[in-house]
Design a protein around this nucleic acid. Structure first.
Lengths: 266, 266
DNA sequence: TCGCCACTTATAACGCGTTACAACTTTCTC
DNA sequence: GAGAAAGTTGTAACGCGTTATAAGTGGCGA
């Protein structure tokens, strides 16, 4: 039984595909997405050709996802649109899922925007960042719902690539700011706290992506969860302020819900 | 190919392994497999034959999922094992995803167990129920990780079928008990609170299913989230008690994490 | 009992993701 | 420039989920 048919020789390309992702034009941030194991000397015409092909494929995939939704992204159609052979996306990325992930990572330039947000109170700050992230996705909902739907449906490695160390560091910084301001109880572990916040964020996103949550409720729902969790970890001094944000989010959510319910009796 | 379309004589060991899970045959209800709500009059031999075929298919699917994981559940193999034609599962269920959902609904008998749990403090009560639910899944992890992985990867209607009104009612009762005991602030909307708890639960399950969270951390992680959120909604009188549960869950989580990290440096 | 009809069956087909492999073309090395 | 190395291309194939269709079968009403 030729069980060696797995033969992940090609998958090697999947490991080093991160190199070209960050090199996307719009990004500008130039962050390294994953491990950069590729030999740094190999800057020849051959490598450039590969990179250009990779870029064409990502570009074509992005366009096709935006135009037709997930169902439109067949590997044969993708290859044709990108002007490459059917085998080439597999050579360069390894699988369809890897291509989708590459598209997602290609457009992640939150960090630049996040840097703009400045706020006195660290709790207000993290909630403002949440708003910003939500705005980002709502800026192109057709694209991102499709993309995230794909992402959720693929194996775990894909999600771990999204929730990467760089991202963790950024958000952990925000939580640590809150702790440093004395707004959290002494015994609270900020890393564990962040994971709870992440769970909240991700699960609400899943609702949105699945169509169970309207765009208007996305931000308020996430912020209510954040406020509740933070309030649960708050010190005595900071609690009242955060509790106020809980009540505020709840009010927003109820109003938006009633408005939506009145508009679409779905 | 079809040389020996054996009818497989439905191995009498049918109820053996599944006994602990699905022992409850949902007798009186008449198996509401889908939203069909089978007309109560149509109890002919023809309908009985259909139901028996349905049962054979679900049973075969359950066995195959347990034995081989998701990859083993191909429609052709399923049809062969169930002793039906390839077209029959499509006639009876409609799609592969619908079969998987039917398997999931077939084994959901939490409620009976939940009724056993009695506890003085309503907060302790809901956390005990969480423990029970986690235990339920951990009782057959190979089966439930596969099943939930499938569920997460299918369209939204599947999840809404899981989070159904009956389930909501049950959990909302638990949350309302907490409110009735005066442990929550006046302004807290229990329905919204429940949704935040659900998000927590579901997202942690997703982690477990994806292999990002070990079995030992599943319960503590969920309970930490629950405790944090409840603490964030707690009234002044109840807060200290709940904050204590936060600290306790956090300690458990840290210890379990360190133990796991020491054992498997993965 | 007979004929209708609902349903299953067998089978072929479609497009899909993925893999394999023999050419062919381009780049690198000497 | 010659030859080696690398990579793409075209194409065939596999198993998959799903659909369509003709032929068969057995329950049910008359």
């Amino acid at each position: 039984m030729g069980e060696d048919t797995v033969r992940r020789a090609r998958t090697g390309a999947l490991a080093d595909h991160g190199a070209d992702l960050a090199a996307e034009p719009s990004a500008g941030t130039g962050g390294h997405t994953t491990k950069e194991a590729a030999p740094p000397r190999a800057r020849g015409r051959r490598e450039a050709g590969k990179e250009e092909r990779r870029h064409r494929i990502i570009q074509a995939a992005r366009e096709m996802i935006r135009e037709t939704g997930r169902t439109g992204l067949s590997m044969r159609a993708l290859a044709e649109r990108a002007g490459v052979s059917l085998a080439t996306p597999y050579n360069l990325f390894g699988s369809r899922g890897a291509v989708v992930l590459a598209v997602l990572e290609d457009v992640r330039d939150f960090q630049a925007r996040f840097a703009q947000v400045r706020n006195g109170d660290p709790v207000d700050h993290i909630l403002a960042v949440v708003d910003l992230a939500v705005e980002f996705y709502l800026g192109d909902p057709a694209f991102y719902t499709t993309l995230w739907r794909e992402v959720f449906s693929v194996s775990g490695e894909v999600r771990t690539a999204i929730y990467n160390p760089r991202r963790d560091e950024f958000w952990l910084g925000l939580v640590n700011d809150i702790a440093a301001a004395g707004a959290l109880r002494e015994e609270i572990d900020t890393a564990l706290l962040l994971r709870q916040l992440d769970h909240q964020f991700r699960s609400v996103m899943l609702d949105w992506v699945a169509g169970d949550l309207s765009a208007g409720l996305l931000g308020p729902t996430i912020k209510l969860g954040y406020a509740l969790i933070l309030c649960g970890a708050a010190s005595d001094e900071a609690r009242e302020r955060i509790a106020h944000r809980v009540a505020e989010s709840q009010r927003l959510l109820r109003e938006a819900g009633e408005r939506a319910a009145g508009a679409t009796p779905s």
